[in-house]
Amino acid sequence: MKKVLIVDDEQDIVESLEFVLQTAGFECHCAYNGEDGLNLAREIQPDLIILDVMMPKINGFKICRLLKYDNKYKNIPILMVTARSQDDDKQIGEETGVDEYITKPFELDDIVKKVEGYLNK
């Protein structure tokens, strides 16, 4: 089973994502802040990461950059979730290597489809 890592400081959002992705047949791991997220990523080596931008202490872009610049993790697709509109973050995203953007509020079906697209190849 493919592993998905969900990193978001909003527990409710993490829980709803976990529910639909588990139902779709993915193994879900969750972290509620950036530091835990990084540690978990190194520990379990996920096949895909869903990452929230606005988190306390260390934001999503930093994590993304750290992972993408590390040979061990740079091939893991990262989906960035943001409450801001795409254009604001797009430029930073391009520099940090984000694979895709999802704006809140999102359609759960869409996310499932995207994850399936990246992982069921």
Partner: peptide, 17 residues
């Protein structure tokens, strides 16, 4: 507005589920 979007997402997700 940005702050409002997050709880809105949680509500919508719950209903969708």
């Amino acid at each position: 507005s940005h702050e409002l979007r997050t709880p809105l997402t949680a509500i919508k997700n719950s209903m969708d589920i």
